[in-house]
Simulated scan of single mutants.
Amino acid sequence: MNKYAIIVAGGSGSRMKSDLPKQFIEIGGYPVLMHTLIRFKEADPSIELILVLPEIQIKFWEDLCEKHDFAVAHQLVKGGKTRFQSGKNGLAAIRKDGIVAIHDGVRPFVSPEIIRESFVVAAAKGTAVVSVPSKDSVRVDGHAIDRESVRLIQTPQTFQVSIIKKAFQSPELSTFTDDASVAEHAGFEINLIEGSYENIKITTPEDLEWAEIILKRNA
């Protein structure tokens, strides 16, 4: 079975209040994005890594790889104007059938165990989307809803290649918030698997503080 991982990183750093895009900010001595790629190689060295970056960031990334002597093999793909278009560009780089995990480049703490489980479940059921229960009370339009029914969606979101490629043939809609929503719109069932609260998405300065704590705890 061919295994692929599309790592999408298109952040600008605006919410991070930084001139440096968040995927390139260093934690533990390496850019966030390098930690993410390493996690997938640790999970399964046979996974073919496809990194989707804005074209204007590719040279900067290549320079970072040289600076840090980063040797994890990956294919670079130019991103699109939107997250949907970037995902579609990443999928276009896959020529054979198999299983593909699509992951946020700024989620560097996904565990190898979660990655491996996502491939197993997607191979058996077609889709596997990582999620965790909500810790907080939830209200929609001012009305309380049962917290037990709420799941917070993470990545990776893993699919049989044939399924997600078919789903991405749909025109882009504003309701597409992630790859799972694209697949669901195309009529495919979404299977949720257990994630981890440690699998944070680094978006704001506070997230960087949590990232350093996680690194120290796992050292």
Rank of each mutant, 00 (worst) to 15 (best):
L208T: 08
P31N: 01
R83N: 12
N218H: 12
A186G: 09
E184I: 07
D207W: 04
V120H: 07
I25P: 00
V121P: 03
E55V: 13
G98E: 04
S134T: 10
K125N: 14
F60Y: 13
T203P: 00
P54M: 08
A122P: 03
D104Q: 04
I102C: 02
G187I: 06
K67A: 11
A219C: 04
I58D: 06
A43P: 05
V100W: 04
I94H: 06
V72A: 08
S137W: 07
E113M: 08
V106F: 01
K17R: 14
L152C: 07
D97N: 15
A219S: 13
M34Q: 03
E48Q: 12
D97F: 12
A183F: 14
D44I: 11
D69K: 15
I115Y: 09
F84H: 04
L20G: 01
E212V: 10
R217L: 11
H74E: 01
D178S: 14
H35C: 01
K59M: 07
T177L: 13
A9P: 04
S137Q: 13
M34E: 01
A5N: 04
V8M: 14
L208F: 11
F60M: 06
I115K: 06
K81Q: 07
M34A: 01
H35S: 02
D69Y: 11
L53P: 06
P54V: 05
E172F: 06
D136H: 07
Q169R: 14
F159Q: 02
E42Y: 08
G187Y: 14
A144Y: 11
I27Q: 05
T127S: 15
F84P: 00
V32A: 02
H103D: 02
S46D: 15
K78N: 14
R15W: 12
E117Y: 06
I164V: 13
L51W: 10
K216E: 15
L51D: 04
R83Q: 10
V138G: 02
F60W: 06
V8K: 04
